[in-house]
Design a binder for these strands. Structure first.
Length: 486
DNA sequence: TGAAATGTTGGGGCG
DNA sequence: ACGCCCCAACATTTC
């Protein structure tokens, strides 16, 4: 084996596992000695207002496990609480490594951070090498015949599938030689959440076991259900989805493992595996969109929709955030998010449609709220999803496609099981009335001792009128276009 | 990965 | 037997 580096520092970021980690495998393949570090980055954590952040706790538990695994191989994890852009070059110099290795991070702020680190390291003669790890195909690996990036999902997916080989999804080995992993200095052990300034006990580790072992357990559980994924995934009261998004976000499970399994089962005839693989491709799609169009972070992908006259409506926004819109399925969805940090995928569409169309509130407000609350928050996917729902994105739904929250509720939560779970004040209503309690007959309401406005809010907007308002706001843009062209 | 409005068809009630 | 109306069921188009 050719050793191109004597000492390497491997920097974990959103790849919190030892096994099947592209950058770590590269470090082990090329260095005599490998140090491992993770930084609780103050640039990210200090601005967080909510000190009860479930994600920090998830990371903490995942790091504890990662540290144990590294220790079993004679190494261990150095954990810092600092600004990564400064701390990494300082640590690299102190350890005397000749290279720092990490996996690619595609978010614009992370790209900027990595550039800062790269030039600081270069000033000390230390190399910075990064690797593809969190996607199957990145940036320019799947392009149209004319060499341009795709902006429509279906042709992207077809090209992605044509390009996929067993090699793209193979596992990277984790097999350090004796003495290859360096143990960290005692002073750099994992600090408690308390020391980091965060509250512990906010994450339900039964429902969401952390670390690579938690991910593996959850994946095994999903594999027992994957064949029914395509039928079950739209019903929020059912256990349809994989719930692996958090693990994908923090890299406690590698995307390659999921793709290998999904592909294999699809080939064996599983329709559920085929549909689920498609969801994994959506993830690559949005990463690729963000890499090519970083401006979507703050702007509509479709520039003309920057002209939409969104409403300023602090009360409406507050009601949406709190799950008090008076539309049971929307409120149940928002309360699920607030209580657990998770929201079912169909409900993300329903809730986002309601905010951007029914309330005509700027998608950026909703995107920021989800960013603050979602355990699986990922800039690329969250932004893509919001712009899809708002009709401002690439391959977005047409603006006139407006979800009817009552129909969606009747279709996908027919017995009101999900609503009853998160909006208990509606639990005593009948299956027929629970989707739109304001339509309940007075006799029926009295029989259930239910009073609209007292027990549950009246709808903050009327569906038909809100729909018409959204249509005309979006239509105004198109007319503006036409007159500008003339 | 919609929904609503509009158009078409065909059966049944009824004079 | 026939025309007429109503309306459900389905198809198409429009937003």
């Amino acid at each position: 084996m050719v050793m191109t580096h004597e000492h390497v520092l491997f920097w974990f970021r959103r790849d919190l596992r030892a096994k099947d980690n592209a950058g770590l495998a590269a470090a082990l393949a090329s260095a005599a000695r490998v140090h491992c570090v993770f930084v609780f980055d103050r640039d990210i954590l200090d601005p967080l207002e909510d000190r009860r952040d479930r994600r920090v706790e998830f990371i903490w538990h995942s790091l504890a496990e990662l540290d144990r695994v590294l220790q079993q191989h004679g190494g261990g994890l150095c954990v810092l609480h600092a600004q990564a852009r400064e701390a990494i070059p300082v640590l690299a110099r102190a350890l005397g490594v000749d290279a720092v290795f990490a996996n690619h991070d595609y978010e614009p702020e992370a790209v900027a951070r990595d550039e800062t680190v790269r030039s600081a390291l270069a000033g000390s003669g230390i190399a910075f090498r990064t690797f593809k790890d969190q996607v199957i195909f990145e940036r320019d690996e799947v392009l149209t015949a004319s060499g341009t990036p795709f902006s429509v999902f279906t042709p992207y997916k077809n090209a992605w599938l044509r390009r996929l080989t067993a090699d793209d999804a193979r596992a990277w080995p984790f097999a350090p030689r004796a003495g290859q992993l360096a143990p960290p200095a005692p002073a750099s052990a994992l600090p408690s959440l308390d020391v980091l300034g965060f509250t512990s006990g906010v994450l339900d580790l039964q429902a969401l076991p952390a670390g690579a072992s938690g991910a593996e357990r959850m994946f095994e559980d999903f594999l027992s259900r994957i064949d029914r994924y395509h039928e079950a995934r739209d019903y929020p009261a059912a256990r349809g989805p994989s719930y692996l998004s958090v693990h994908l976000r923090f890299g406690t499970i590698p995307i390659r493992r999921l793709v290998r399994e999904a592909w294999q089962r699809w080939q064996e005839g599983s329709r559920g595996a085929e549909v689920w693989l498609s969801e994994l491709i959506w993830r690559d799609f949005y990463f690729q969109i963000l890499a090519h169009h970083p401006r979507v972070v703050n702007e509509s992908f479709k520039a003309e929709y920057e002209a939409i006259r969104w409403r300023e409506d602090p009360e409406g926004f507050a009601a949406w955030c709190a799950g008090r819109t008076g539309y049971p399925i929307v409120d149940a969805a928002m309360r699920q998010l607030n209580q657990t940090g998770y929201m079912h995928n169909r409900l993300r569409m329903v809730a986002a449609s309601f905010l951007t169309k029914h309330l005509l509130i700027d998608w950026r407000h909703g995107e920021r709220y989800f960013a603050a609350k979602l355990n699986d928050y990922d800039l690329a996917a969250n932004n893509g999803g919001w712009q899809w729902a708002a009709s401002t994105g690439c391959d977005a739904q047409p603006y006139f496609r407006i979800f009817n929250p009552i129909n969606q509720s009747q279709k996908f939560d027919p017995e009101g099981k999900f609503i009853r779970r998160y909006v208990p004040e509606l639990a005593r209503l009948s299956d027929a009335d629970i989707h739109a309690p304001w339509l309940m007959k007075p006799v029926e309401a009295r029989a259930r001792s239910f009073e609209l406005g007292r027990d549950y809010p009246a709808p903050i907007v009327e569906h038909a009128a809100a729909r018409a308002r959204a249509l005309s706001a979006f239509k105004a843009i198109r007319e503006g276009e036409n007159s500008a062209a003339v």
